[in-house]
């Protein structure tokens, strides 16, 4: 099979975020960047499918030049090659526009499977894999917690529903799957993998080169701000014993939740 994994670079979850003076971006100089968590699970799932079938795994990343690190890490873990689309000069595209640009490139490749993380830890749209399924006219499954190869015509996916319910779904190929975190245990790159990475192909494109310079967003960011507190918070200080006593007193006498 020919498998594409969509991977994105995002600020590390533990990074503290500061908004820039223009209120339209974050201060990137104080942020460390990493591979989006659920995308790392998507890559691992693709690599495991590759081990069971005779497959090629291709990473596709859209982003600014520093995001090439995500591609390199993925190649070191065992992906075969990569497509990198630079978003230079068009960093504020909405997710539908990004979907159109990526689909334009993916259309030539005719992948059997497109895997993506469920949701990015920065914008959190949780839409890209589904948008791509429509634009490439494939089947789709979201919130995927398990996969099972089912011959050459279809794949079975275990989907997570609300409140602890699940559902298996049979998807005709080609298919686009959005992968939920926790589906597998992502591997680390081996030293051999890191050496091999250096010889692997990364095809780089600009939005212009893909003939997508006319694509414009209809959704515009107006302003970013730190969430306003909706309630007043009382901070409790002291050593652990003092804190424990104060808390239990609050439970008893203020909240009246203890007998």
């Amino acid at each position: 099979m020919k498998i594409c994994v969509l991977m994105k670079q995002v600020p590390d979850k533990d990074s503290s975020i500061k908004i820039s003076m223009d209120n339209l971006s974050i201060d990137e100089s104080i942020v460390s960047f990493t591979t989006n968590e659920s995308d790392a699970y998507a890559l691992e799932e693709a690599l495991q499918i590759k081990e069971k079938t005779d497959s090629e795994v291709v990473i596709c990343t859209f982003g600014k030049d520093s995001a090439i690190q995500v591609v390199k890490d993925g190649l070191a873990k065992g992906a075969d090659r990569a497509i990198f689309i630079s978003n230079k000069d068009k960093e504020d595209l909405d997710i539908l526009s990004i979907g159109k640009i990526i689909s334009k490139k993916l259309l030539d490749e005719k992948f059997d499977l497109v895997l993506s993380g469920l949701q990015s830890d920065d914008d959190g749209n949780a839409q890209l894999g589904l948008i791509i399924s429509e634009l490439l006219n494939t089947s789709h499954g979201s919130l995927v917690m398990g996969t099972e190869i089912d011959g050459n015509e279809s794949i079975k996916v275990k989907r997570e529903l609300e409140n602890g319910w699940f559902q298996w779904s049979k998807l005709d190929l080609p298919a686009s799957l959005s992968i939920q975190s926790g589906i597998n245990t992502p591997r680390y790159a081996s030293l051999k993998g890191i050496m091999a990475m250096k010889k692997k192909t990364i095809d780089k494109f600009t939005i212009d080169e893909l003939g997508c310079s006319e694509i414009n967003s209809k959704v515009n960011l107006d302003k970013m701000y730190i969430p306003q507190k909706s309630k007043s918070t009382e901070y409790i200080d002291g050593n652990p014993s003092e804190i424990a006593e104060k808390l239990v007193d609050i439970f008893k006498n203020e909240m009246k939740v203890l007998g």
Partner: peptide, 11 residues
Amino acid sequence: LYQGKVTADFT
């Protein structure tokens, strides 16, 4: 955005 660390208005 950013896991709830930032709120944003869109038009």
